Simulated assay, not measured.
Amino acid sequence: MSEVIAGLSQLLGLAQGIAWAAALAFVRIGAMVALMPGLGDPSVPQRVKLALVVAFTLVVTPILADRIGPDATPTVLALGGEVVAGLLLGVGMRLFIVALQTAAAMIAQATTLSQLFSGAAPEPQPAVGNLFVMAGVALALVTGLHVRAAELLLLSYDLLPPGGPLSAASAADWGLAVIGRTFSLAFSLAAPFVIASLIYNLALGVINRAMPALMVSMVGAPALTLGALALMAVATPVILAAWLDAFAGQMAAPFAVAP
Rank of each mutant, 00 (worst) to 15 (best):
W20V: 11
V257S: 11
P165F: 00
V59I: 12
E123W: 03
Q250K: 07
V219F: 12
L189T: 03
V44D: 02
T57L: 07
A104K: 03
V234D: 01
A256G: 13
L244D: 13
A246N: 09
T61P: 10
L100W: 02
F96K: 02
T112F: 14
L12A: 14
L226C: 00
L141S: 12
S188L: 05
V84G: 10
V133R: 12
T143L: 14
V137F: 09
F96I: 04
P212N: 13
A241Q: 10
A203Y: 04
A190P: 02
G30D: 03
L198M: 13
A85R: 15
F247Q: 14
A78N: 09
A65W: 14
G40H: 03
E82I: 13
G249T: 07
A21M: 11
A221Q: 12
L95E: 12
F26Y: 10
A169D: 11
A235M: 10
A105E: 15
V194G: 05
G38D: 07
G144H: 09
D245L: 14
E3D: 10
P212M: 11
T182N: 06
I18L: 07
M215S: 04
L166C: 02
T61F: 11
A248I: 04
S118T: 14
T61A: 12
F117P: 08
P74G: 09
L214D: 04
A228I: 06
A121P: 00
S2H: 12
R47L: 06
D158E: 15
A78Q: 14
V4S: 08
M251C: 06
S188D: 07
A51Y: 02
I179S: 03
I5V: 09
L131E: 10
T102P: 02
L154C: 01
T143H: 07
T112V: 10
G163I: 05
T236E: 03
P42E: 00
F56Q: 07
G220C: 08
V4M: 04
I63W: 13
I199S: 06
G119F: 11
F247H: 01
G92N: 08
P162G: 07
K49N: 02
L202R: 09
Q125A: 14
Y200H: 13
G80K: 11
P122W: 14
V178W: 01
S43H: 05
T75K: 13
L154H: 05
F187M: 07
P62D: 02
V91T: 14
A85V: 05
A99G: 01
L159H: 06
V33C: 10
A168G: 08
V137I: 15
V133G: 09
L176F: 11
P161G: 05
